[in-house]
């Protein structure tokens, strides 16, 4: 066909795909750190699911919460 045409499509769509994938990966990582709370709900102080890493780099104590894991959100607690 034409090298320029293929290059344009590869660069354009490839960049968008890479950016979309990076957003999905970052959201997944952030959700894991926060503890898979609903994205649209306001934060309520005292209901933290966060785990604090210890000085030796090991994960802190398991979060003690009443909320069960949400399989639909990819929560693998």
């Amino acid at each position: 066909m034409n090298g320029y045409v293929e290059a344009g499509y590869v660069v354009g769509l490839g960049t968008l795909a890479a950016y979309a994938a990076s957003l999905a990966v970052r959201e997944r990582a952030a959700r894991r750190r926060v503890g898979a709370g609903p994205a649209g709900t306001p934060f309520v102080a005292g209901t933290s699911h966060a785990r604090v890493p210890g000085p030796d780099g090991a994960a802190g104590p398991e979060p003690v919460t009443g909320a069960p894991p949400d399989p639909a959100s990819g929560d693998r607690r």
């Binding site: 957003l23 970052r26 959201e27 952030a30 959700r31 750190r33 926060v34 503890g35 709370g37 994205a39 649209g40 934060f43 102080a45 933290s48 699911h49 966060a50």
Partner: peptide
């Protein structure tokens, strides 16, 4: 992502 980052900061 902005919402999650904000919540992470709050927590």
């Amino acid at each position: 992502l902005f919402v999650l980052a904000e919540r992470e900061g709050d927590e």
